[in-house]
Amino acid sequence: MELTLEKIRLMPIILLMIIGCFGLLNSKSILRSLLSLDVIDTATISIFVITAASVGYQTPIVSIERYSSYSDPYPQAIILTAIVIGFATQALLCAIALRLGRKSPMLRYRDLEK
């Protein structure tokens, strides 16, 4: 398995994903797992963006002068939906955390899982 430029570019994102998963599996309270989920979400979106930019990094918009190496617009368009859905999930989770916080303000799993 050789180390190409694309794989090196993906390294920081993989690191980010590992951080997110570590946080999610080790979190003691609801808020921390919520933030970790957001980190994983960001990492996933970045993977899409970097994959799209592997063929070129210029804006994929047709105007009078055509760019020579523009990025792939397909994954970029599709990831917009995932961004919105991720945001909606976060909002719903925050609403639940707010409701749960009335009874147990620390939002610790230890108190809630009884």
């Binding site: 999610l24 609801i30 797992s33 919520l34 989920l37 991720g86 999930t89 719903l92 989770l93 639940i96």
Partner: peptide, 10 residues
């Protein structure tokens, strides 16, 4: 439901 949503989202 929180558990479902966070598990399903992941």
């Amino acid at each position: 439901s929180f558990q479902y949503l966070i598990g399903g989202g992941l």
